[in-house]
């Protein structure tokens, strides 16, 4: 089966798994903002520490984490090379035509690569430790203000849950259809980009037909299970923040303060020595 990290929950019994999904969602958003604010390498080191600690606490095997990075490795390398070649720095080390490699460029591309990798590592920590149901329940709960203005938040949550559930099913189906077309002589990896795109058409059409057929049966199955039977729907999975959530929030807050402090050289109180400038620029 194809590897789709999104929606691939990794079952384990850890501190992070037991956190309230809503708290995790908010913390991840805070984390994303933090990553985008980080400027210097020493602050990046703190973020790396934060992510590594988070991964260890969540008991996610290193192979899983590497797998999630693997999916973006091309993007990371691509942006790193572009940044390296086109960043306009002062200390030019090598140049040719409009391309130049500078010391600042090297640092900048390292930072951008780190930023992407950290973003993925941090956010997949959420999807690895939270069941899709937890995620959708959490989002539904966080959308509560919208419910007051008559937005059908529960329906949205069910739609999200079904979408997550069907991602692996449909990707398996794509594989099957591609194999069937290959068996009949179709080729998906030769020719130019236009030819390849055209070759995908005989895959997409059966996929859509099958998806609609599935949707039809799913609609019946939802009805058979009395979906929308009562407005007083109950909830099996209840979310109650515990002391763990308090610890997680406090821990993340401490890290954010640390990162911001490092980022601003402790509000200018610390002046790095000449030889360490690259860490703090």
């Amino acid at each position: 089966m194809r590897d789709i990290t999104l929606g691939q929950y990794y079952p384990a019994d850890s501190f992070t798994h037991k956190l309230d999904p809503r708290v995790k969602l908010v913390l991840v958003i805070a984390f994303i903002v933090m990553v985008f604010l980080v400027k210097n390498l020493i602050a990046y080191a703190a973020v790396i520490l934060c992510v590594v600690l988070g991964t260890l606490i969540s008991r996610i095997p290193i192979s899983k984490v590497l797998k999630s990075i693997k999916t973006i490795i091309f993007l990371v390398l691509f942006t790193a090379v572009l940044n390296l070649l086109f960043y306009k720095g002062d200390t030019v080390l090598w140049s040719w035509w409009r391309i130049s490699v500078s010391l600042e460029g090297i640092l900048f591309s390292i930072k951008m690569a780190l930023r992407l990798i950290l973003l993925v590592m941090g956010t997949t920590l959420l999807t690895y430790t939270t069941t899709p149901t937890g995620l959708t329940d959490g989002m539904e709960s966080l959308m509560y203000p919208l419910k007051l203005i008559k937005v059908p938040t529960h329906d949205i949550a069910v739609i999200m849950s079904i979408a997550l559930r069907f991602i692996p099913i449909l990707s398996e189906e794509v594989d099957k259809i591609m194999m069937a077309q290959k068996a009949r002589g179709a080729s998906f990896d030769t020719g130019g980009i236009v030819k390849r795109a055209k070759a995908l058409l005989p895959v997409l059409i059966p996929l859509f037909v099958s998806a609609f057929r599935r949707a039809d049966e799913l609609a019946l199955a939802l009805d058979a299970r009395c979906y929308n039977a009562t407005p007083n729907r109950t909830r099996y999975q209840i979310m109650k923040p515990t002391y763990r959530d308090l610890i997680a929030v406090a821990g993340t807050a401490a890290f954010i303060v640390l990162v911001v402090a490092l980022n601003m050289n402790f509000w200018g109180a610390y002046v790095p020595s000449e030889s360490l400038w690259w860490l703090f620029s």
Partner: peptide
């Protein structure tokens, strides 16, 4: 129960999927 089991499941964890029907009926937790 229908023909294709895949098209009848709404949740990605089994216990949550089973809870779906009773939840819709308003059964206490």
């Amino acid at each position: 129960v229908f023909q294709n089991a895949d098209n009848q499941m709404v949740a990605s964890v089994i216990e949550n999927d089973i809870a779906f029907g009773p939840e819709n009926l308003g059964v206490p937790r």
